[in-house]
Write a protein that binds this DNA or RNA. Sequence first.
DNA 1: GTCTATAGGTTGATAGAC
DNA 2: GTCTATCAACCTATAGAC
Lengths: 204, 204
Amino acid sequence: MNDRVSTKTRILDVAERLFGEKGFDGTSLRDITAEAGVNLAAVNYHFQTKDSLIDAVIERRIAPVNRRRLEMLEAAGPNPAIEQVVEAFLVPVLECSLSPMVALMGRVLATPDQFVYRVFKKHLAAIAQRFADAVGAALPELAPAERLWRLHFMGGTMAHVLSWSHVLPEMTGGLCDPSDRKALTARLVSFLSAGFRAPFTEAH
Amino acid sequence: MNDRVSTKTRILDVAERLFGEKGFDGTSLRDITAEAGVNLAAVNYHFQTKDSLIDAVIERRIAPVNRRRLEMLEAAGPNPAIEQVVEAFLVPVLECSLSPMVALMGRVLATPDQFVYRVFKKHLAAIAQRFADAVGAALPELAPAERLWRLHFMGGTMAHVLSWSHVLPEMTGGLCDPSDRKALTARLVSFLSAGFRAPFTEAH
DNA sequence: GTCTATAGGTTGATAGAC
DNA sequence: GTCTATCAACCTATAGAC
């Protein structure tokens, strides 16, 4: 067997992929251990519970992505263009090409359930304010609530793109190809930046 | 007991709500029958299998929404503004206020799994081409692939808004209130229409 | 149509040998 | 750290009485 990676890492890798493909409820610990070629009891030994495994799987990927996001935000300086803010949000995820992480991230964003939400919120809190501030710096005329709404819209667009990547070519008769990350990033930045710049006056 | 609604309808109603709240894998038939106050075997009698129940739950809501979408598209005439196309897509779902249907729709759009996708595609196929044509009529300079990408982006934005509605107020410290449907629709139409109008030139 | 009862399989988690 | 064996609970689905 390939013992160059530890049992713990093998579990994390397989769990990441299966959670992304079939969801958290749709993946059993047995699915994971079977594919990882490890014993069922190893999961409980290394991670105690399934919830705690989910937490570990998510944490391993979100933390570096958010670090990279803050780096890009900082590199954009105190007066960023909205395009730079959007890029700082998207690129750290999209640049991971077709790694299983992408499907996992999509799944996390598309699973508004109690537990997943709690894990997600823990990591979101660390960057949400920074992005809200950055949007405010780029578009100072945008009302605070509207900033948050549009950040939420951006998150949704990204989540959907990540989640449906693997079926989009078939859905569109091959017209849309999510594997071309450069083009996809350009499309998203153009669409979302225009959305952020859209006029909005509160209905009265 | 309240026998003004049939067992079959009670199952559909409760299933719709629980599927929306906890997902398809996360909801057992026992969860449904317990809350509906009906016998477990009634599900199999009326719907045969769980998958077939999921199908019925989704179909019941998607069909009228899509009918309404096509009506609005038709009412917009052969030369619609992009705002009218976006509204035709969003309003038939959003106008249902906080009904359980909203969470269900979000869940369907956020569950890219084999079975749910198959059900969803069946209903999507009937309107996707019409919306692609409508976007083409509103923005003829947009390349066909770009049209589909931006429709996909719009679907993601809507899915996310629907899915996270129930936690968004808590996530934003009360700044974002999804229950004000009029304002939410206006926000989405403004954001998305601007996105559709965004310039885009293929990277080379 | 609705019920009870149950089959037959899967789940997450643990105890205890090595 | 890794294994086998097992528990208790849960799952979907069905058979058969009423």
